[in-house]
Structures are given as structure tokens and as C-alpha cells.
Design a binder for these strands. Sequence first.
DNA 1: CCTTTTCCATTCATTTATGAATATCACGAC
DNA 2: GTCGTGATATTCATAAATGAATGGAAAAGG
Lengths: 298, 298
Amino acid sequence: MEKAFSNLDWSLIQSFLVVAETGSLSGAARQLNASQPTLGRHIKTLEDTLKVEVFHRHARGFELTDTGQALLAPAQRMAAAMADLSLAAAGGETDLAGTVRISSSIFMAHHVMPGILADLRQQEPQIQIELVPSDQSQNLLFREADIAVRMYRPEQLDMITKHLGDIELGMFAAESYIARKGRPTGADDLPHHDIVGYDANDEIIREMRGMGIPADRDWFAVRCDHQTTYWELVRAGCGLGFCQSHIARQTPGIEEINIDFPIPHLPVWLTAHESLRHTPRISRVWTHLESALKPFVS
Amino acid sequence: MEKAFSNLDWSLIQSFLVVAETGSLSGAARQLNASQPTLGRHIKTLEDTLKVEVFHRHARGFELTDTGQALLAPAQRMAAAMADLSLAAAGGETDLAGTVRISSSIFMAHHVMPGILADLRQQEPQIQIELVPSDQSQNLLFREADIAVRMYRPEQLDMITKHLGDIELGMFAAESYIARKGRPTGADDLPHHDIVGYDANDEIIREMRGMGIPADRDWFAVRCDHQTTYWELVRAGCGLGFCQSHIARQTPGIEEINIDFPIPHLPVWLTAHESLRHTPRISRVWTHLESALKPFVS
DNA sequence: CCTTTTCCATTCATTTATGAATATCACGAC
DNA sequence: GTCGTGATATTCATAAATGAATGGAAAAGG
């Protein structure tokens, strides 16, 4: 009844997987908080035990062999199961103390979260907070975060979500810009203005076209994908820009531009994995975020 | 992008799973070729890291808590993925040398396999053989064996199978029995004889009923589930018994009983996991078994 | 062509994990 | 009640895994 592979340490597979994904021992070592020689030995032990070469060595790093490729899928299934296990374990925790990882957009993380989290820390000093500012959506299934604040409806399964409301967006410009180019008189006037745009994300263009404005990528003379930097470009007078009204109105040197087309609102969703719903520290942070974000989604 | 649980060593889950399944540290230690204190520490580390109690300790051993129950399923998924990985790795081996685990019925293992394996060892000294005599079907998906010799058509998926032919069964009796009770004259005469039967497995009874013989469990005054011991009971003169004709005819002191009802044949199937099909040592053993078993399935 | 960077392999002192031995406890049999 | 069995905890000497440091080699950038 004993199994032929039971002598093989599962942690070797863990190392294998990360090396396969990063393509280097050094990279894997950084990710696993281990050292490069350790990872090298793990791979060597794995290969010796399985009597199979799983990596081609070359100067730039490690590359999977065909055999190694075949091992990748089951190794990933192990990792997925491990993630499930981790979630299940967190769901069983009873202690309020611990760390909660919150993911939010870079803009929110920069302008909104600090105050909210400072309050929370004061109320619950036992709870440590790790803020993960990121505009790529974090994968909550792999617990890259415990709670996510998102500007769109989350699609992942097994999640609990709550729509907190909508954030009002507006068009703004720096005083320096207005001094130079004047205020746009209306939508028709926009082509004569500079608008700070997003580079990869053509959300704005699609929105404007949806409203009958013949927007074009070339309109946007200055573009930036990074939300907080985007806002700095607007503040520096590079052009008109969109921003959460609540924040923009508190920014000195910025004026609101009222134009005759409606700007869509930004929905705010709170998300967490359902198996964490009853974990004390998670639910505590959840309710805090819920109430603390309310003023922003009026 | 880093994951919250990446600091948790997967081998702890491995230990957790075996402790959960065996219900004791000592049992798990035996199965994993480790020591009881090691397993104890692994569980403790796991619980400390997850901040969750996964086992109730009591004098008789370890029992899963509710939280631990929740971790069991993902841990088993990890084990299943590990089994897949092990299979995939074995499929990538290129070396002829290595160990092949062969599962067969206890009877075959006792009377047939030794000679076949002795030949094989002489031809391929590089290949080590581990024979797993068992009347429960081994789970090839978990690599409890690499190749199985079975007396029925295997049902598991992802298997390659070959029907080698059928083994002739016959009814036999020890000379001592015949001297005492005489030979049965036909099927009608059977109720006046002792037949050595199987206990749990009522295969024989079902077969005889299928042929219109009103067989009953009570006919079988002596019963034994264990095939080789069964045969020793027949040799000792406990009663009539069924056996592979090929073997029985070579047994001194045993005579064949010809009766007027047909005795079914025993199909012989060779089975292996398909991902091992091209592994040199496995396919070498496979072809050897195939040809060496031929004389038995004429 | 030379420099810089980024890898991997190796070495060796050190930390960490391990297991034999032992103490202790609970249960069941006699 | 007592003894035997089989379990978990604890201790401590030892074995094993680890990581900082070093050397070397190959690609990328000037």
C-alpha cells in the first residue's frame, strides 16, 4: 500500500515550480526567501530522485525540458490545491490579531487608503495591514490579497462582493493650463485642447466615442498609464484630465471644467474570498472599509 | 505578486496528510520513513504557521479538528497531483535501470511469478523487481504498482491493458481425500462431498448457481479467503477445490476431478498506466511478462 | 572591444532539523 | 489491581540543509 514516490519531498516540487516560473535559481530564491544554492540543490535532488532531467541549464538561467514541461501541470495543480488549503486554514482562524492584505488601485492606495488605514490601526492595533497598490487585478484565489477594493464588478467565483456605491468623476485642469489655453467651452471645443490620456488602457477613448465624441488616440498628446503620475501630469498643466472629483477638488491649483457631456461614474466594489468571511480580522477590516469608504461614494 | 502562504513548506502538508490518514504520529512516521518526533514537530510547525489547531490530541493518537477536516480535501488534491507528477516523471525516464513494481494475485505471485521473474532478472540485471502480492486491486493511478497482472478486465482510466488469454481452471482433490470419500461421479454427487470454499468472496457459489447447481454456503465446510492457503487446505485433503489446472497438475499428491459441468476460465489481463508505456524498463518488463505468461494461458 | 550585469557552481562555517533514547500517560487484558 | 501495549512528549548528540562568499562564464550595453 505504500507509494513509490512517498520518499520524494513535496517541498522539492515547490522549488521546481518556482524555478520553472521564474526561469532562474536566483529569481526563485528571491521569491521563496531562500538562497540560490539551496534552490540549485533542490533541483538537483529532484532530478536525481526522479532520474529525469527537468531543466536545460544555460547561461541565462534554467529552461524546462520536455519532461519538465510534463511535470509543470501537476505541479501547478499542487500549488492550486495549496492555495485552497491556505484559504481554508485562514477561514479557521479565531484570533483577531494578524495581517490583512488589502489590494486597491494605485490611485486609491495613494489618495484614499492611508487615512482610512490610519484610523483602523488606531482602533485595532492588533491587526497589521499590508497595502498592495496595483492596477492589475490581484488574484484573490491565490491570496495575493485578502480584501480588494475595485472599480469594477469582480468576476472571480467563490467571492463575496459588495457594491459600495459610485465615485463621481470629473474633468479638471491646472490653473497654469487654463491660463495658457483657456477653458473648453463644450464638447465641441475639446479637439482644440490637450487631454492627458492613458496609454495602454483606451478606456477614456471608448467612453468618449460612446458619447458621440470622435475621440482619437492622437488627441492625447501626453499619456501615462500610472494613475498617480497621470494626476501629476494634469497638475503640471500638461492638459485636461479626469479624476475623482472628491480628490481633485481638494487639490490646490486645480480647477474643475464643466462640460456639457456626462462623465460616467466609477463603481466601487469590495471583494473577499468567501471562506474568509468569518475570519475575525478580515471581517473587521471589511466593515471598517465599508463605512470608511462611504464618504467617497456619495 | 508574492503569495501570503509561500513561506509554508509543502512538506508540512505531506506530513499533515499522512498523520490525518493514519491517525497517529508513529504510524505516519513508519509510512514516511521518518521518526515520530519529526512528525510531531511538523504538525506543530504547521499549526503555529497557520495559527489554527488541526488535530485534537488524545492518548490514542491524533484526530482532525473541524478546521483540520477542511484542510483534508485540498491536501488530498495535492497528493493526487503529486501522483500525477510522479507518473509523468517516470514516463520521462530514459534509463533501463530501475525498479519495477509488479502487482499480482497472491496465487500467481506464489506459483507463477517467481520463475518468470528469475528469468527476467537474468536477462536484465539492471532492472530491480518489487513483487506486490495482493488480492485487492492495487491503484495504479497512485503508483502502488507499475504493472498489474489481473484476473479481470481493469476498469481504471488512462490505462493500457492487454488480454493475454485465459487460464484453465479445474477441480482437484488430494489423494488422501479421494481415499476417504471417493471421487464425485458428477455434479449431482457434489452435495455429498466437501468443497473448500472462499469466505468473503462468494464467486464460486455464484458461478455454480449460474450453472444450475443449487450451491449453498454451507456446502463449503472449510473456507479460506487466502488463495495459497486455500490450496494448502485442498492439498491437506480438506475437500475438493478449484485451482489453475496448469499448476494443480504439477502438484504431487493431487488428482484432477473430471465432472460434467464446465468450469469457467480465468482471463488474464496485463495493465499499466499509459504514461509509463514508453518508459524503457517498464516496457521491457511488460513484454517479458507477456511472453512468459503465454504458456499459462494456452 | 571592454565593461557591467546577471546568472550558476562550489566551498565551508553555521544554523537547523533529525532521530535514538527515555519518560510518561492511557487503555485493555488477565 | 497489575502488567503489557502502543501512543505522545522531551532531551540531547548528531547529521543534514542552509546561506554568505567567491569564482567563473555568458550575454547585454556602451
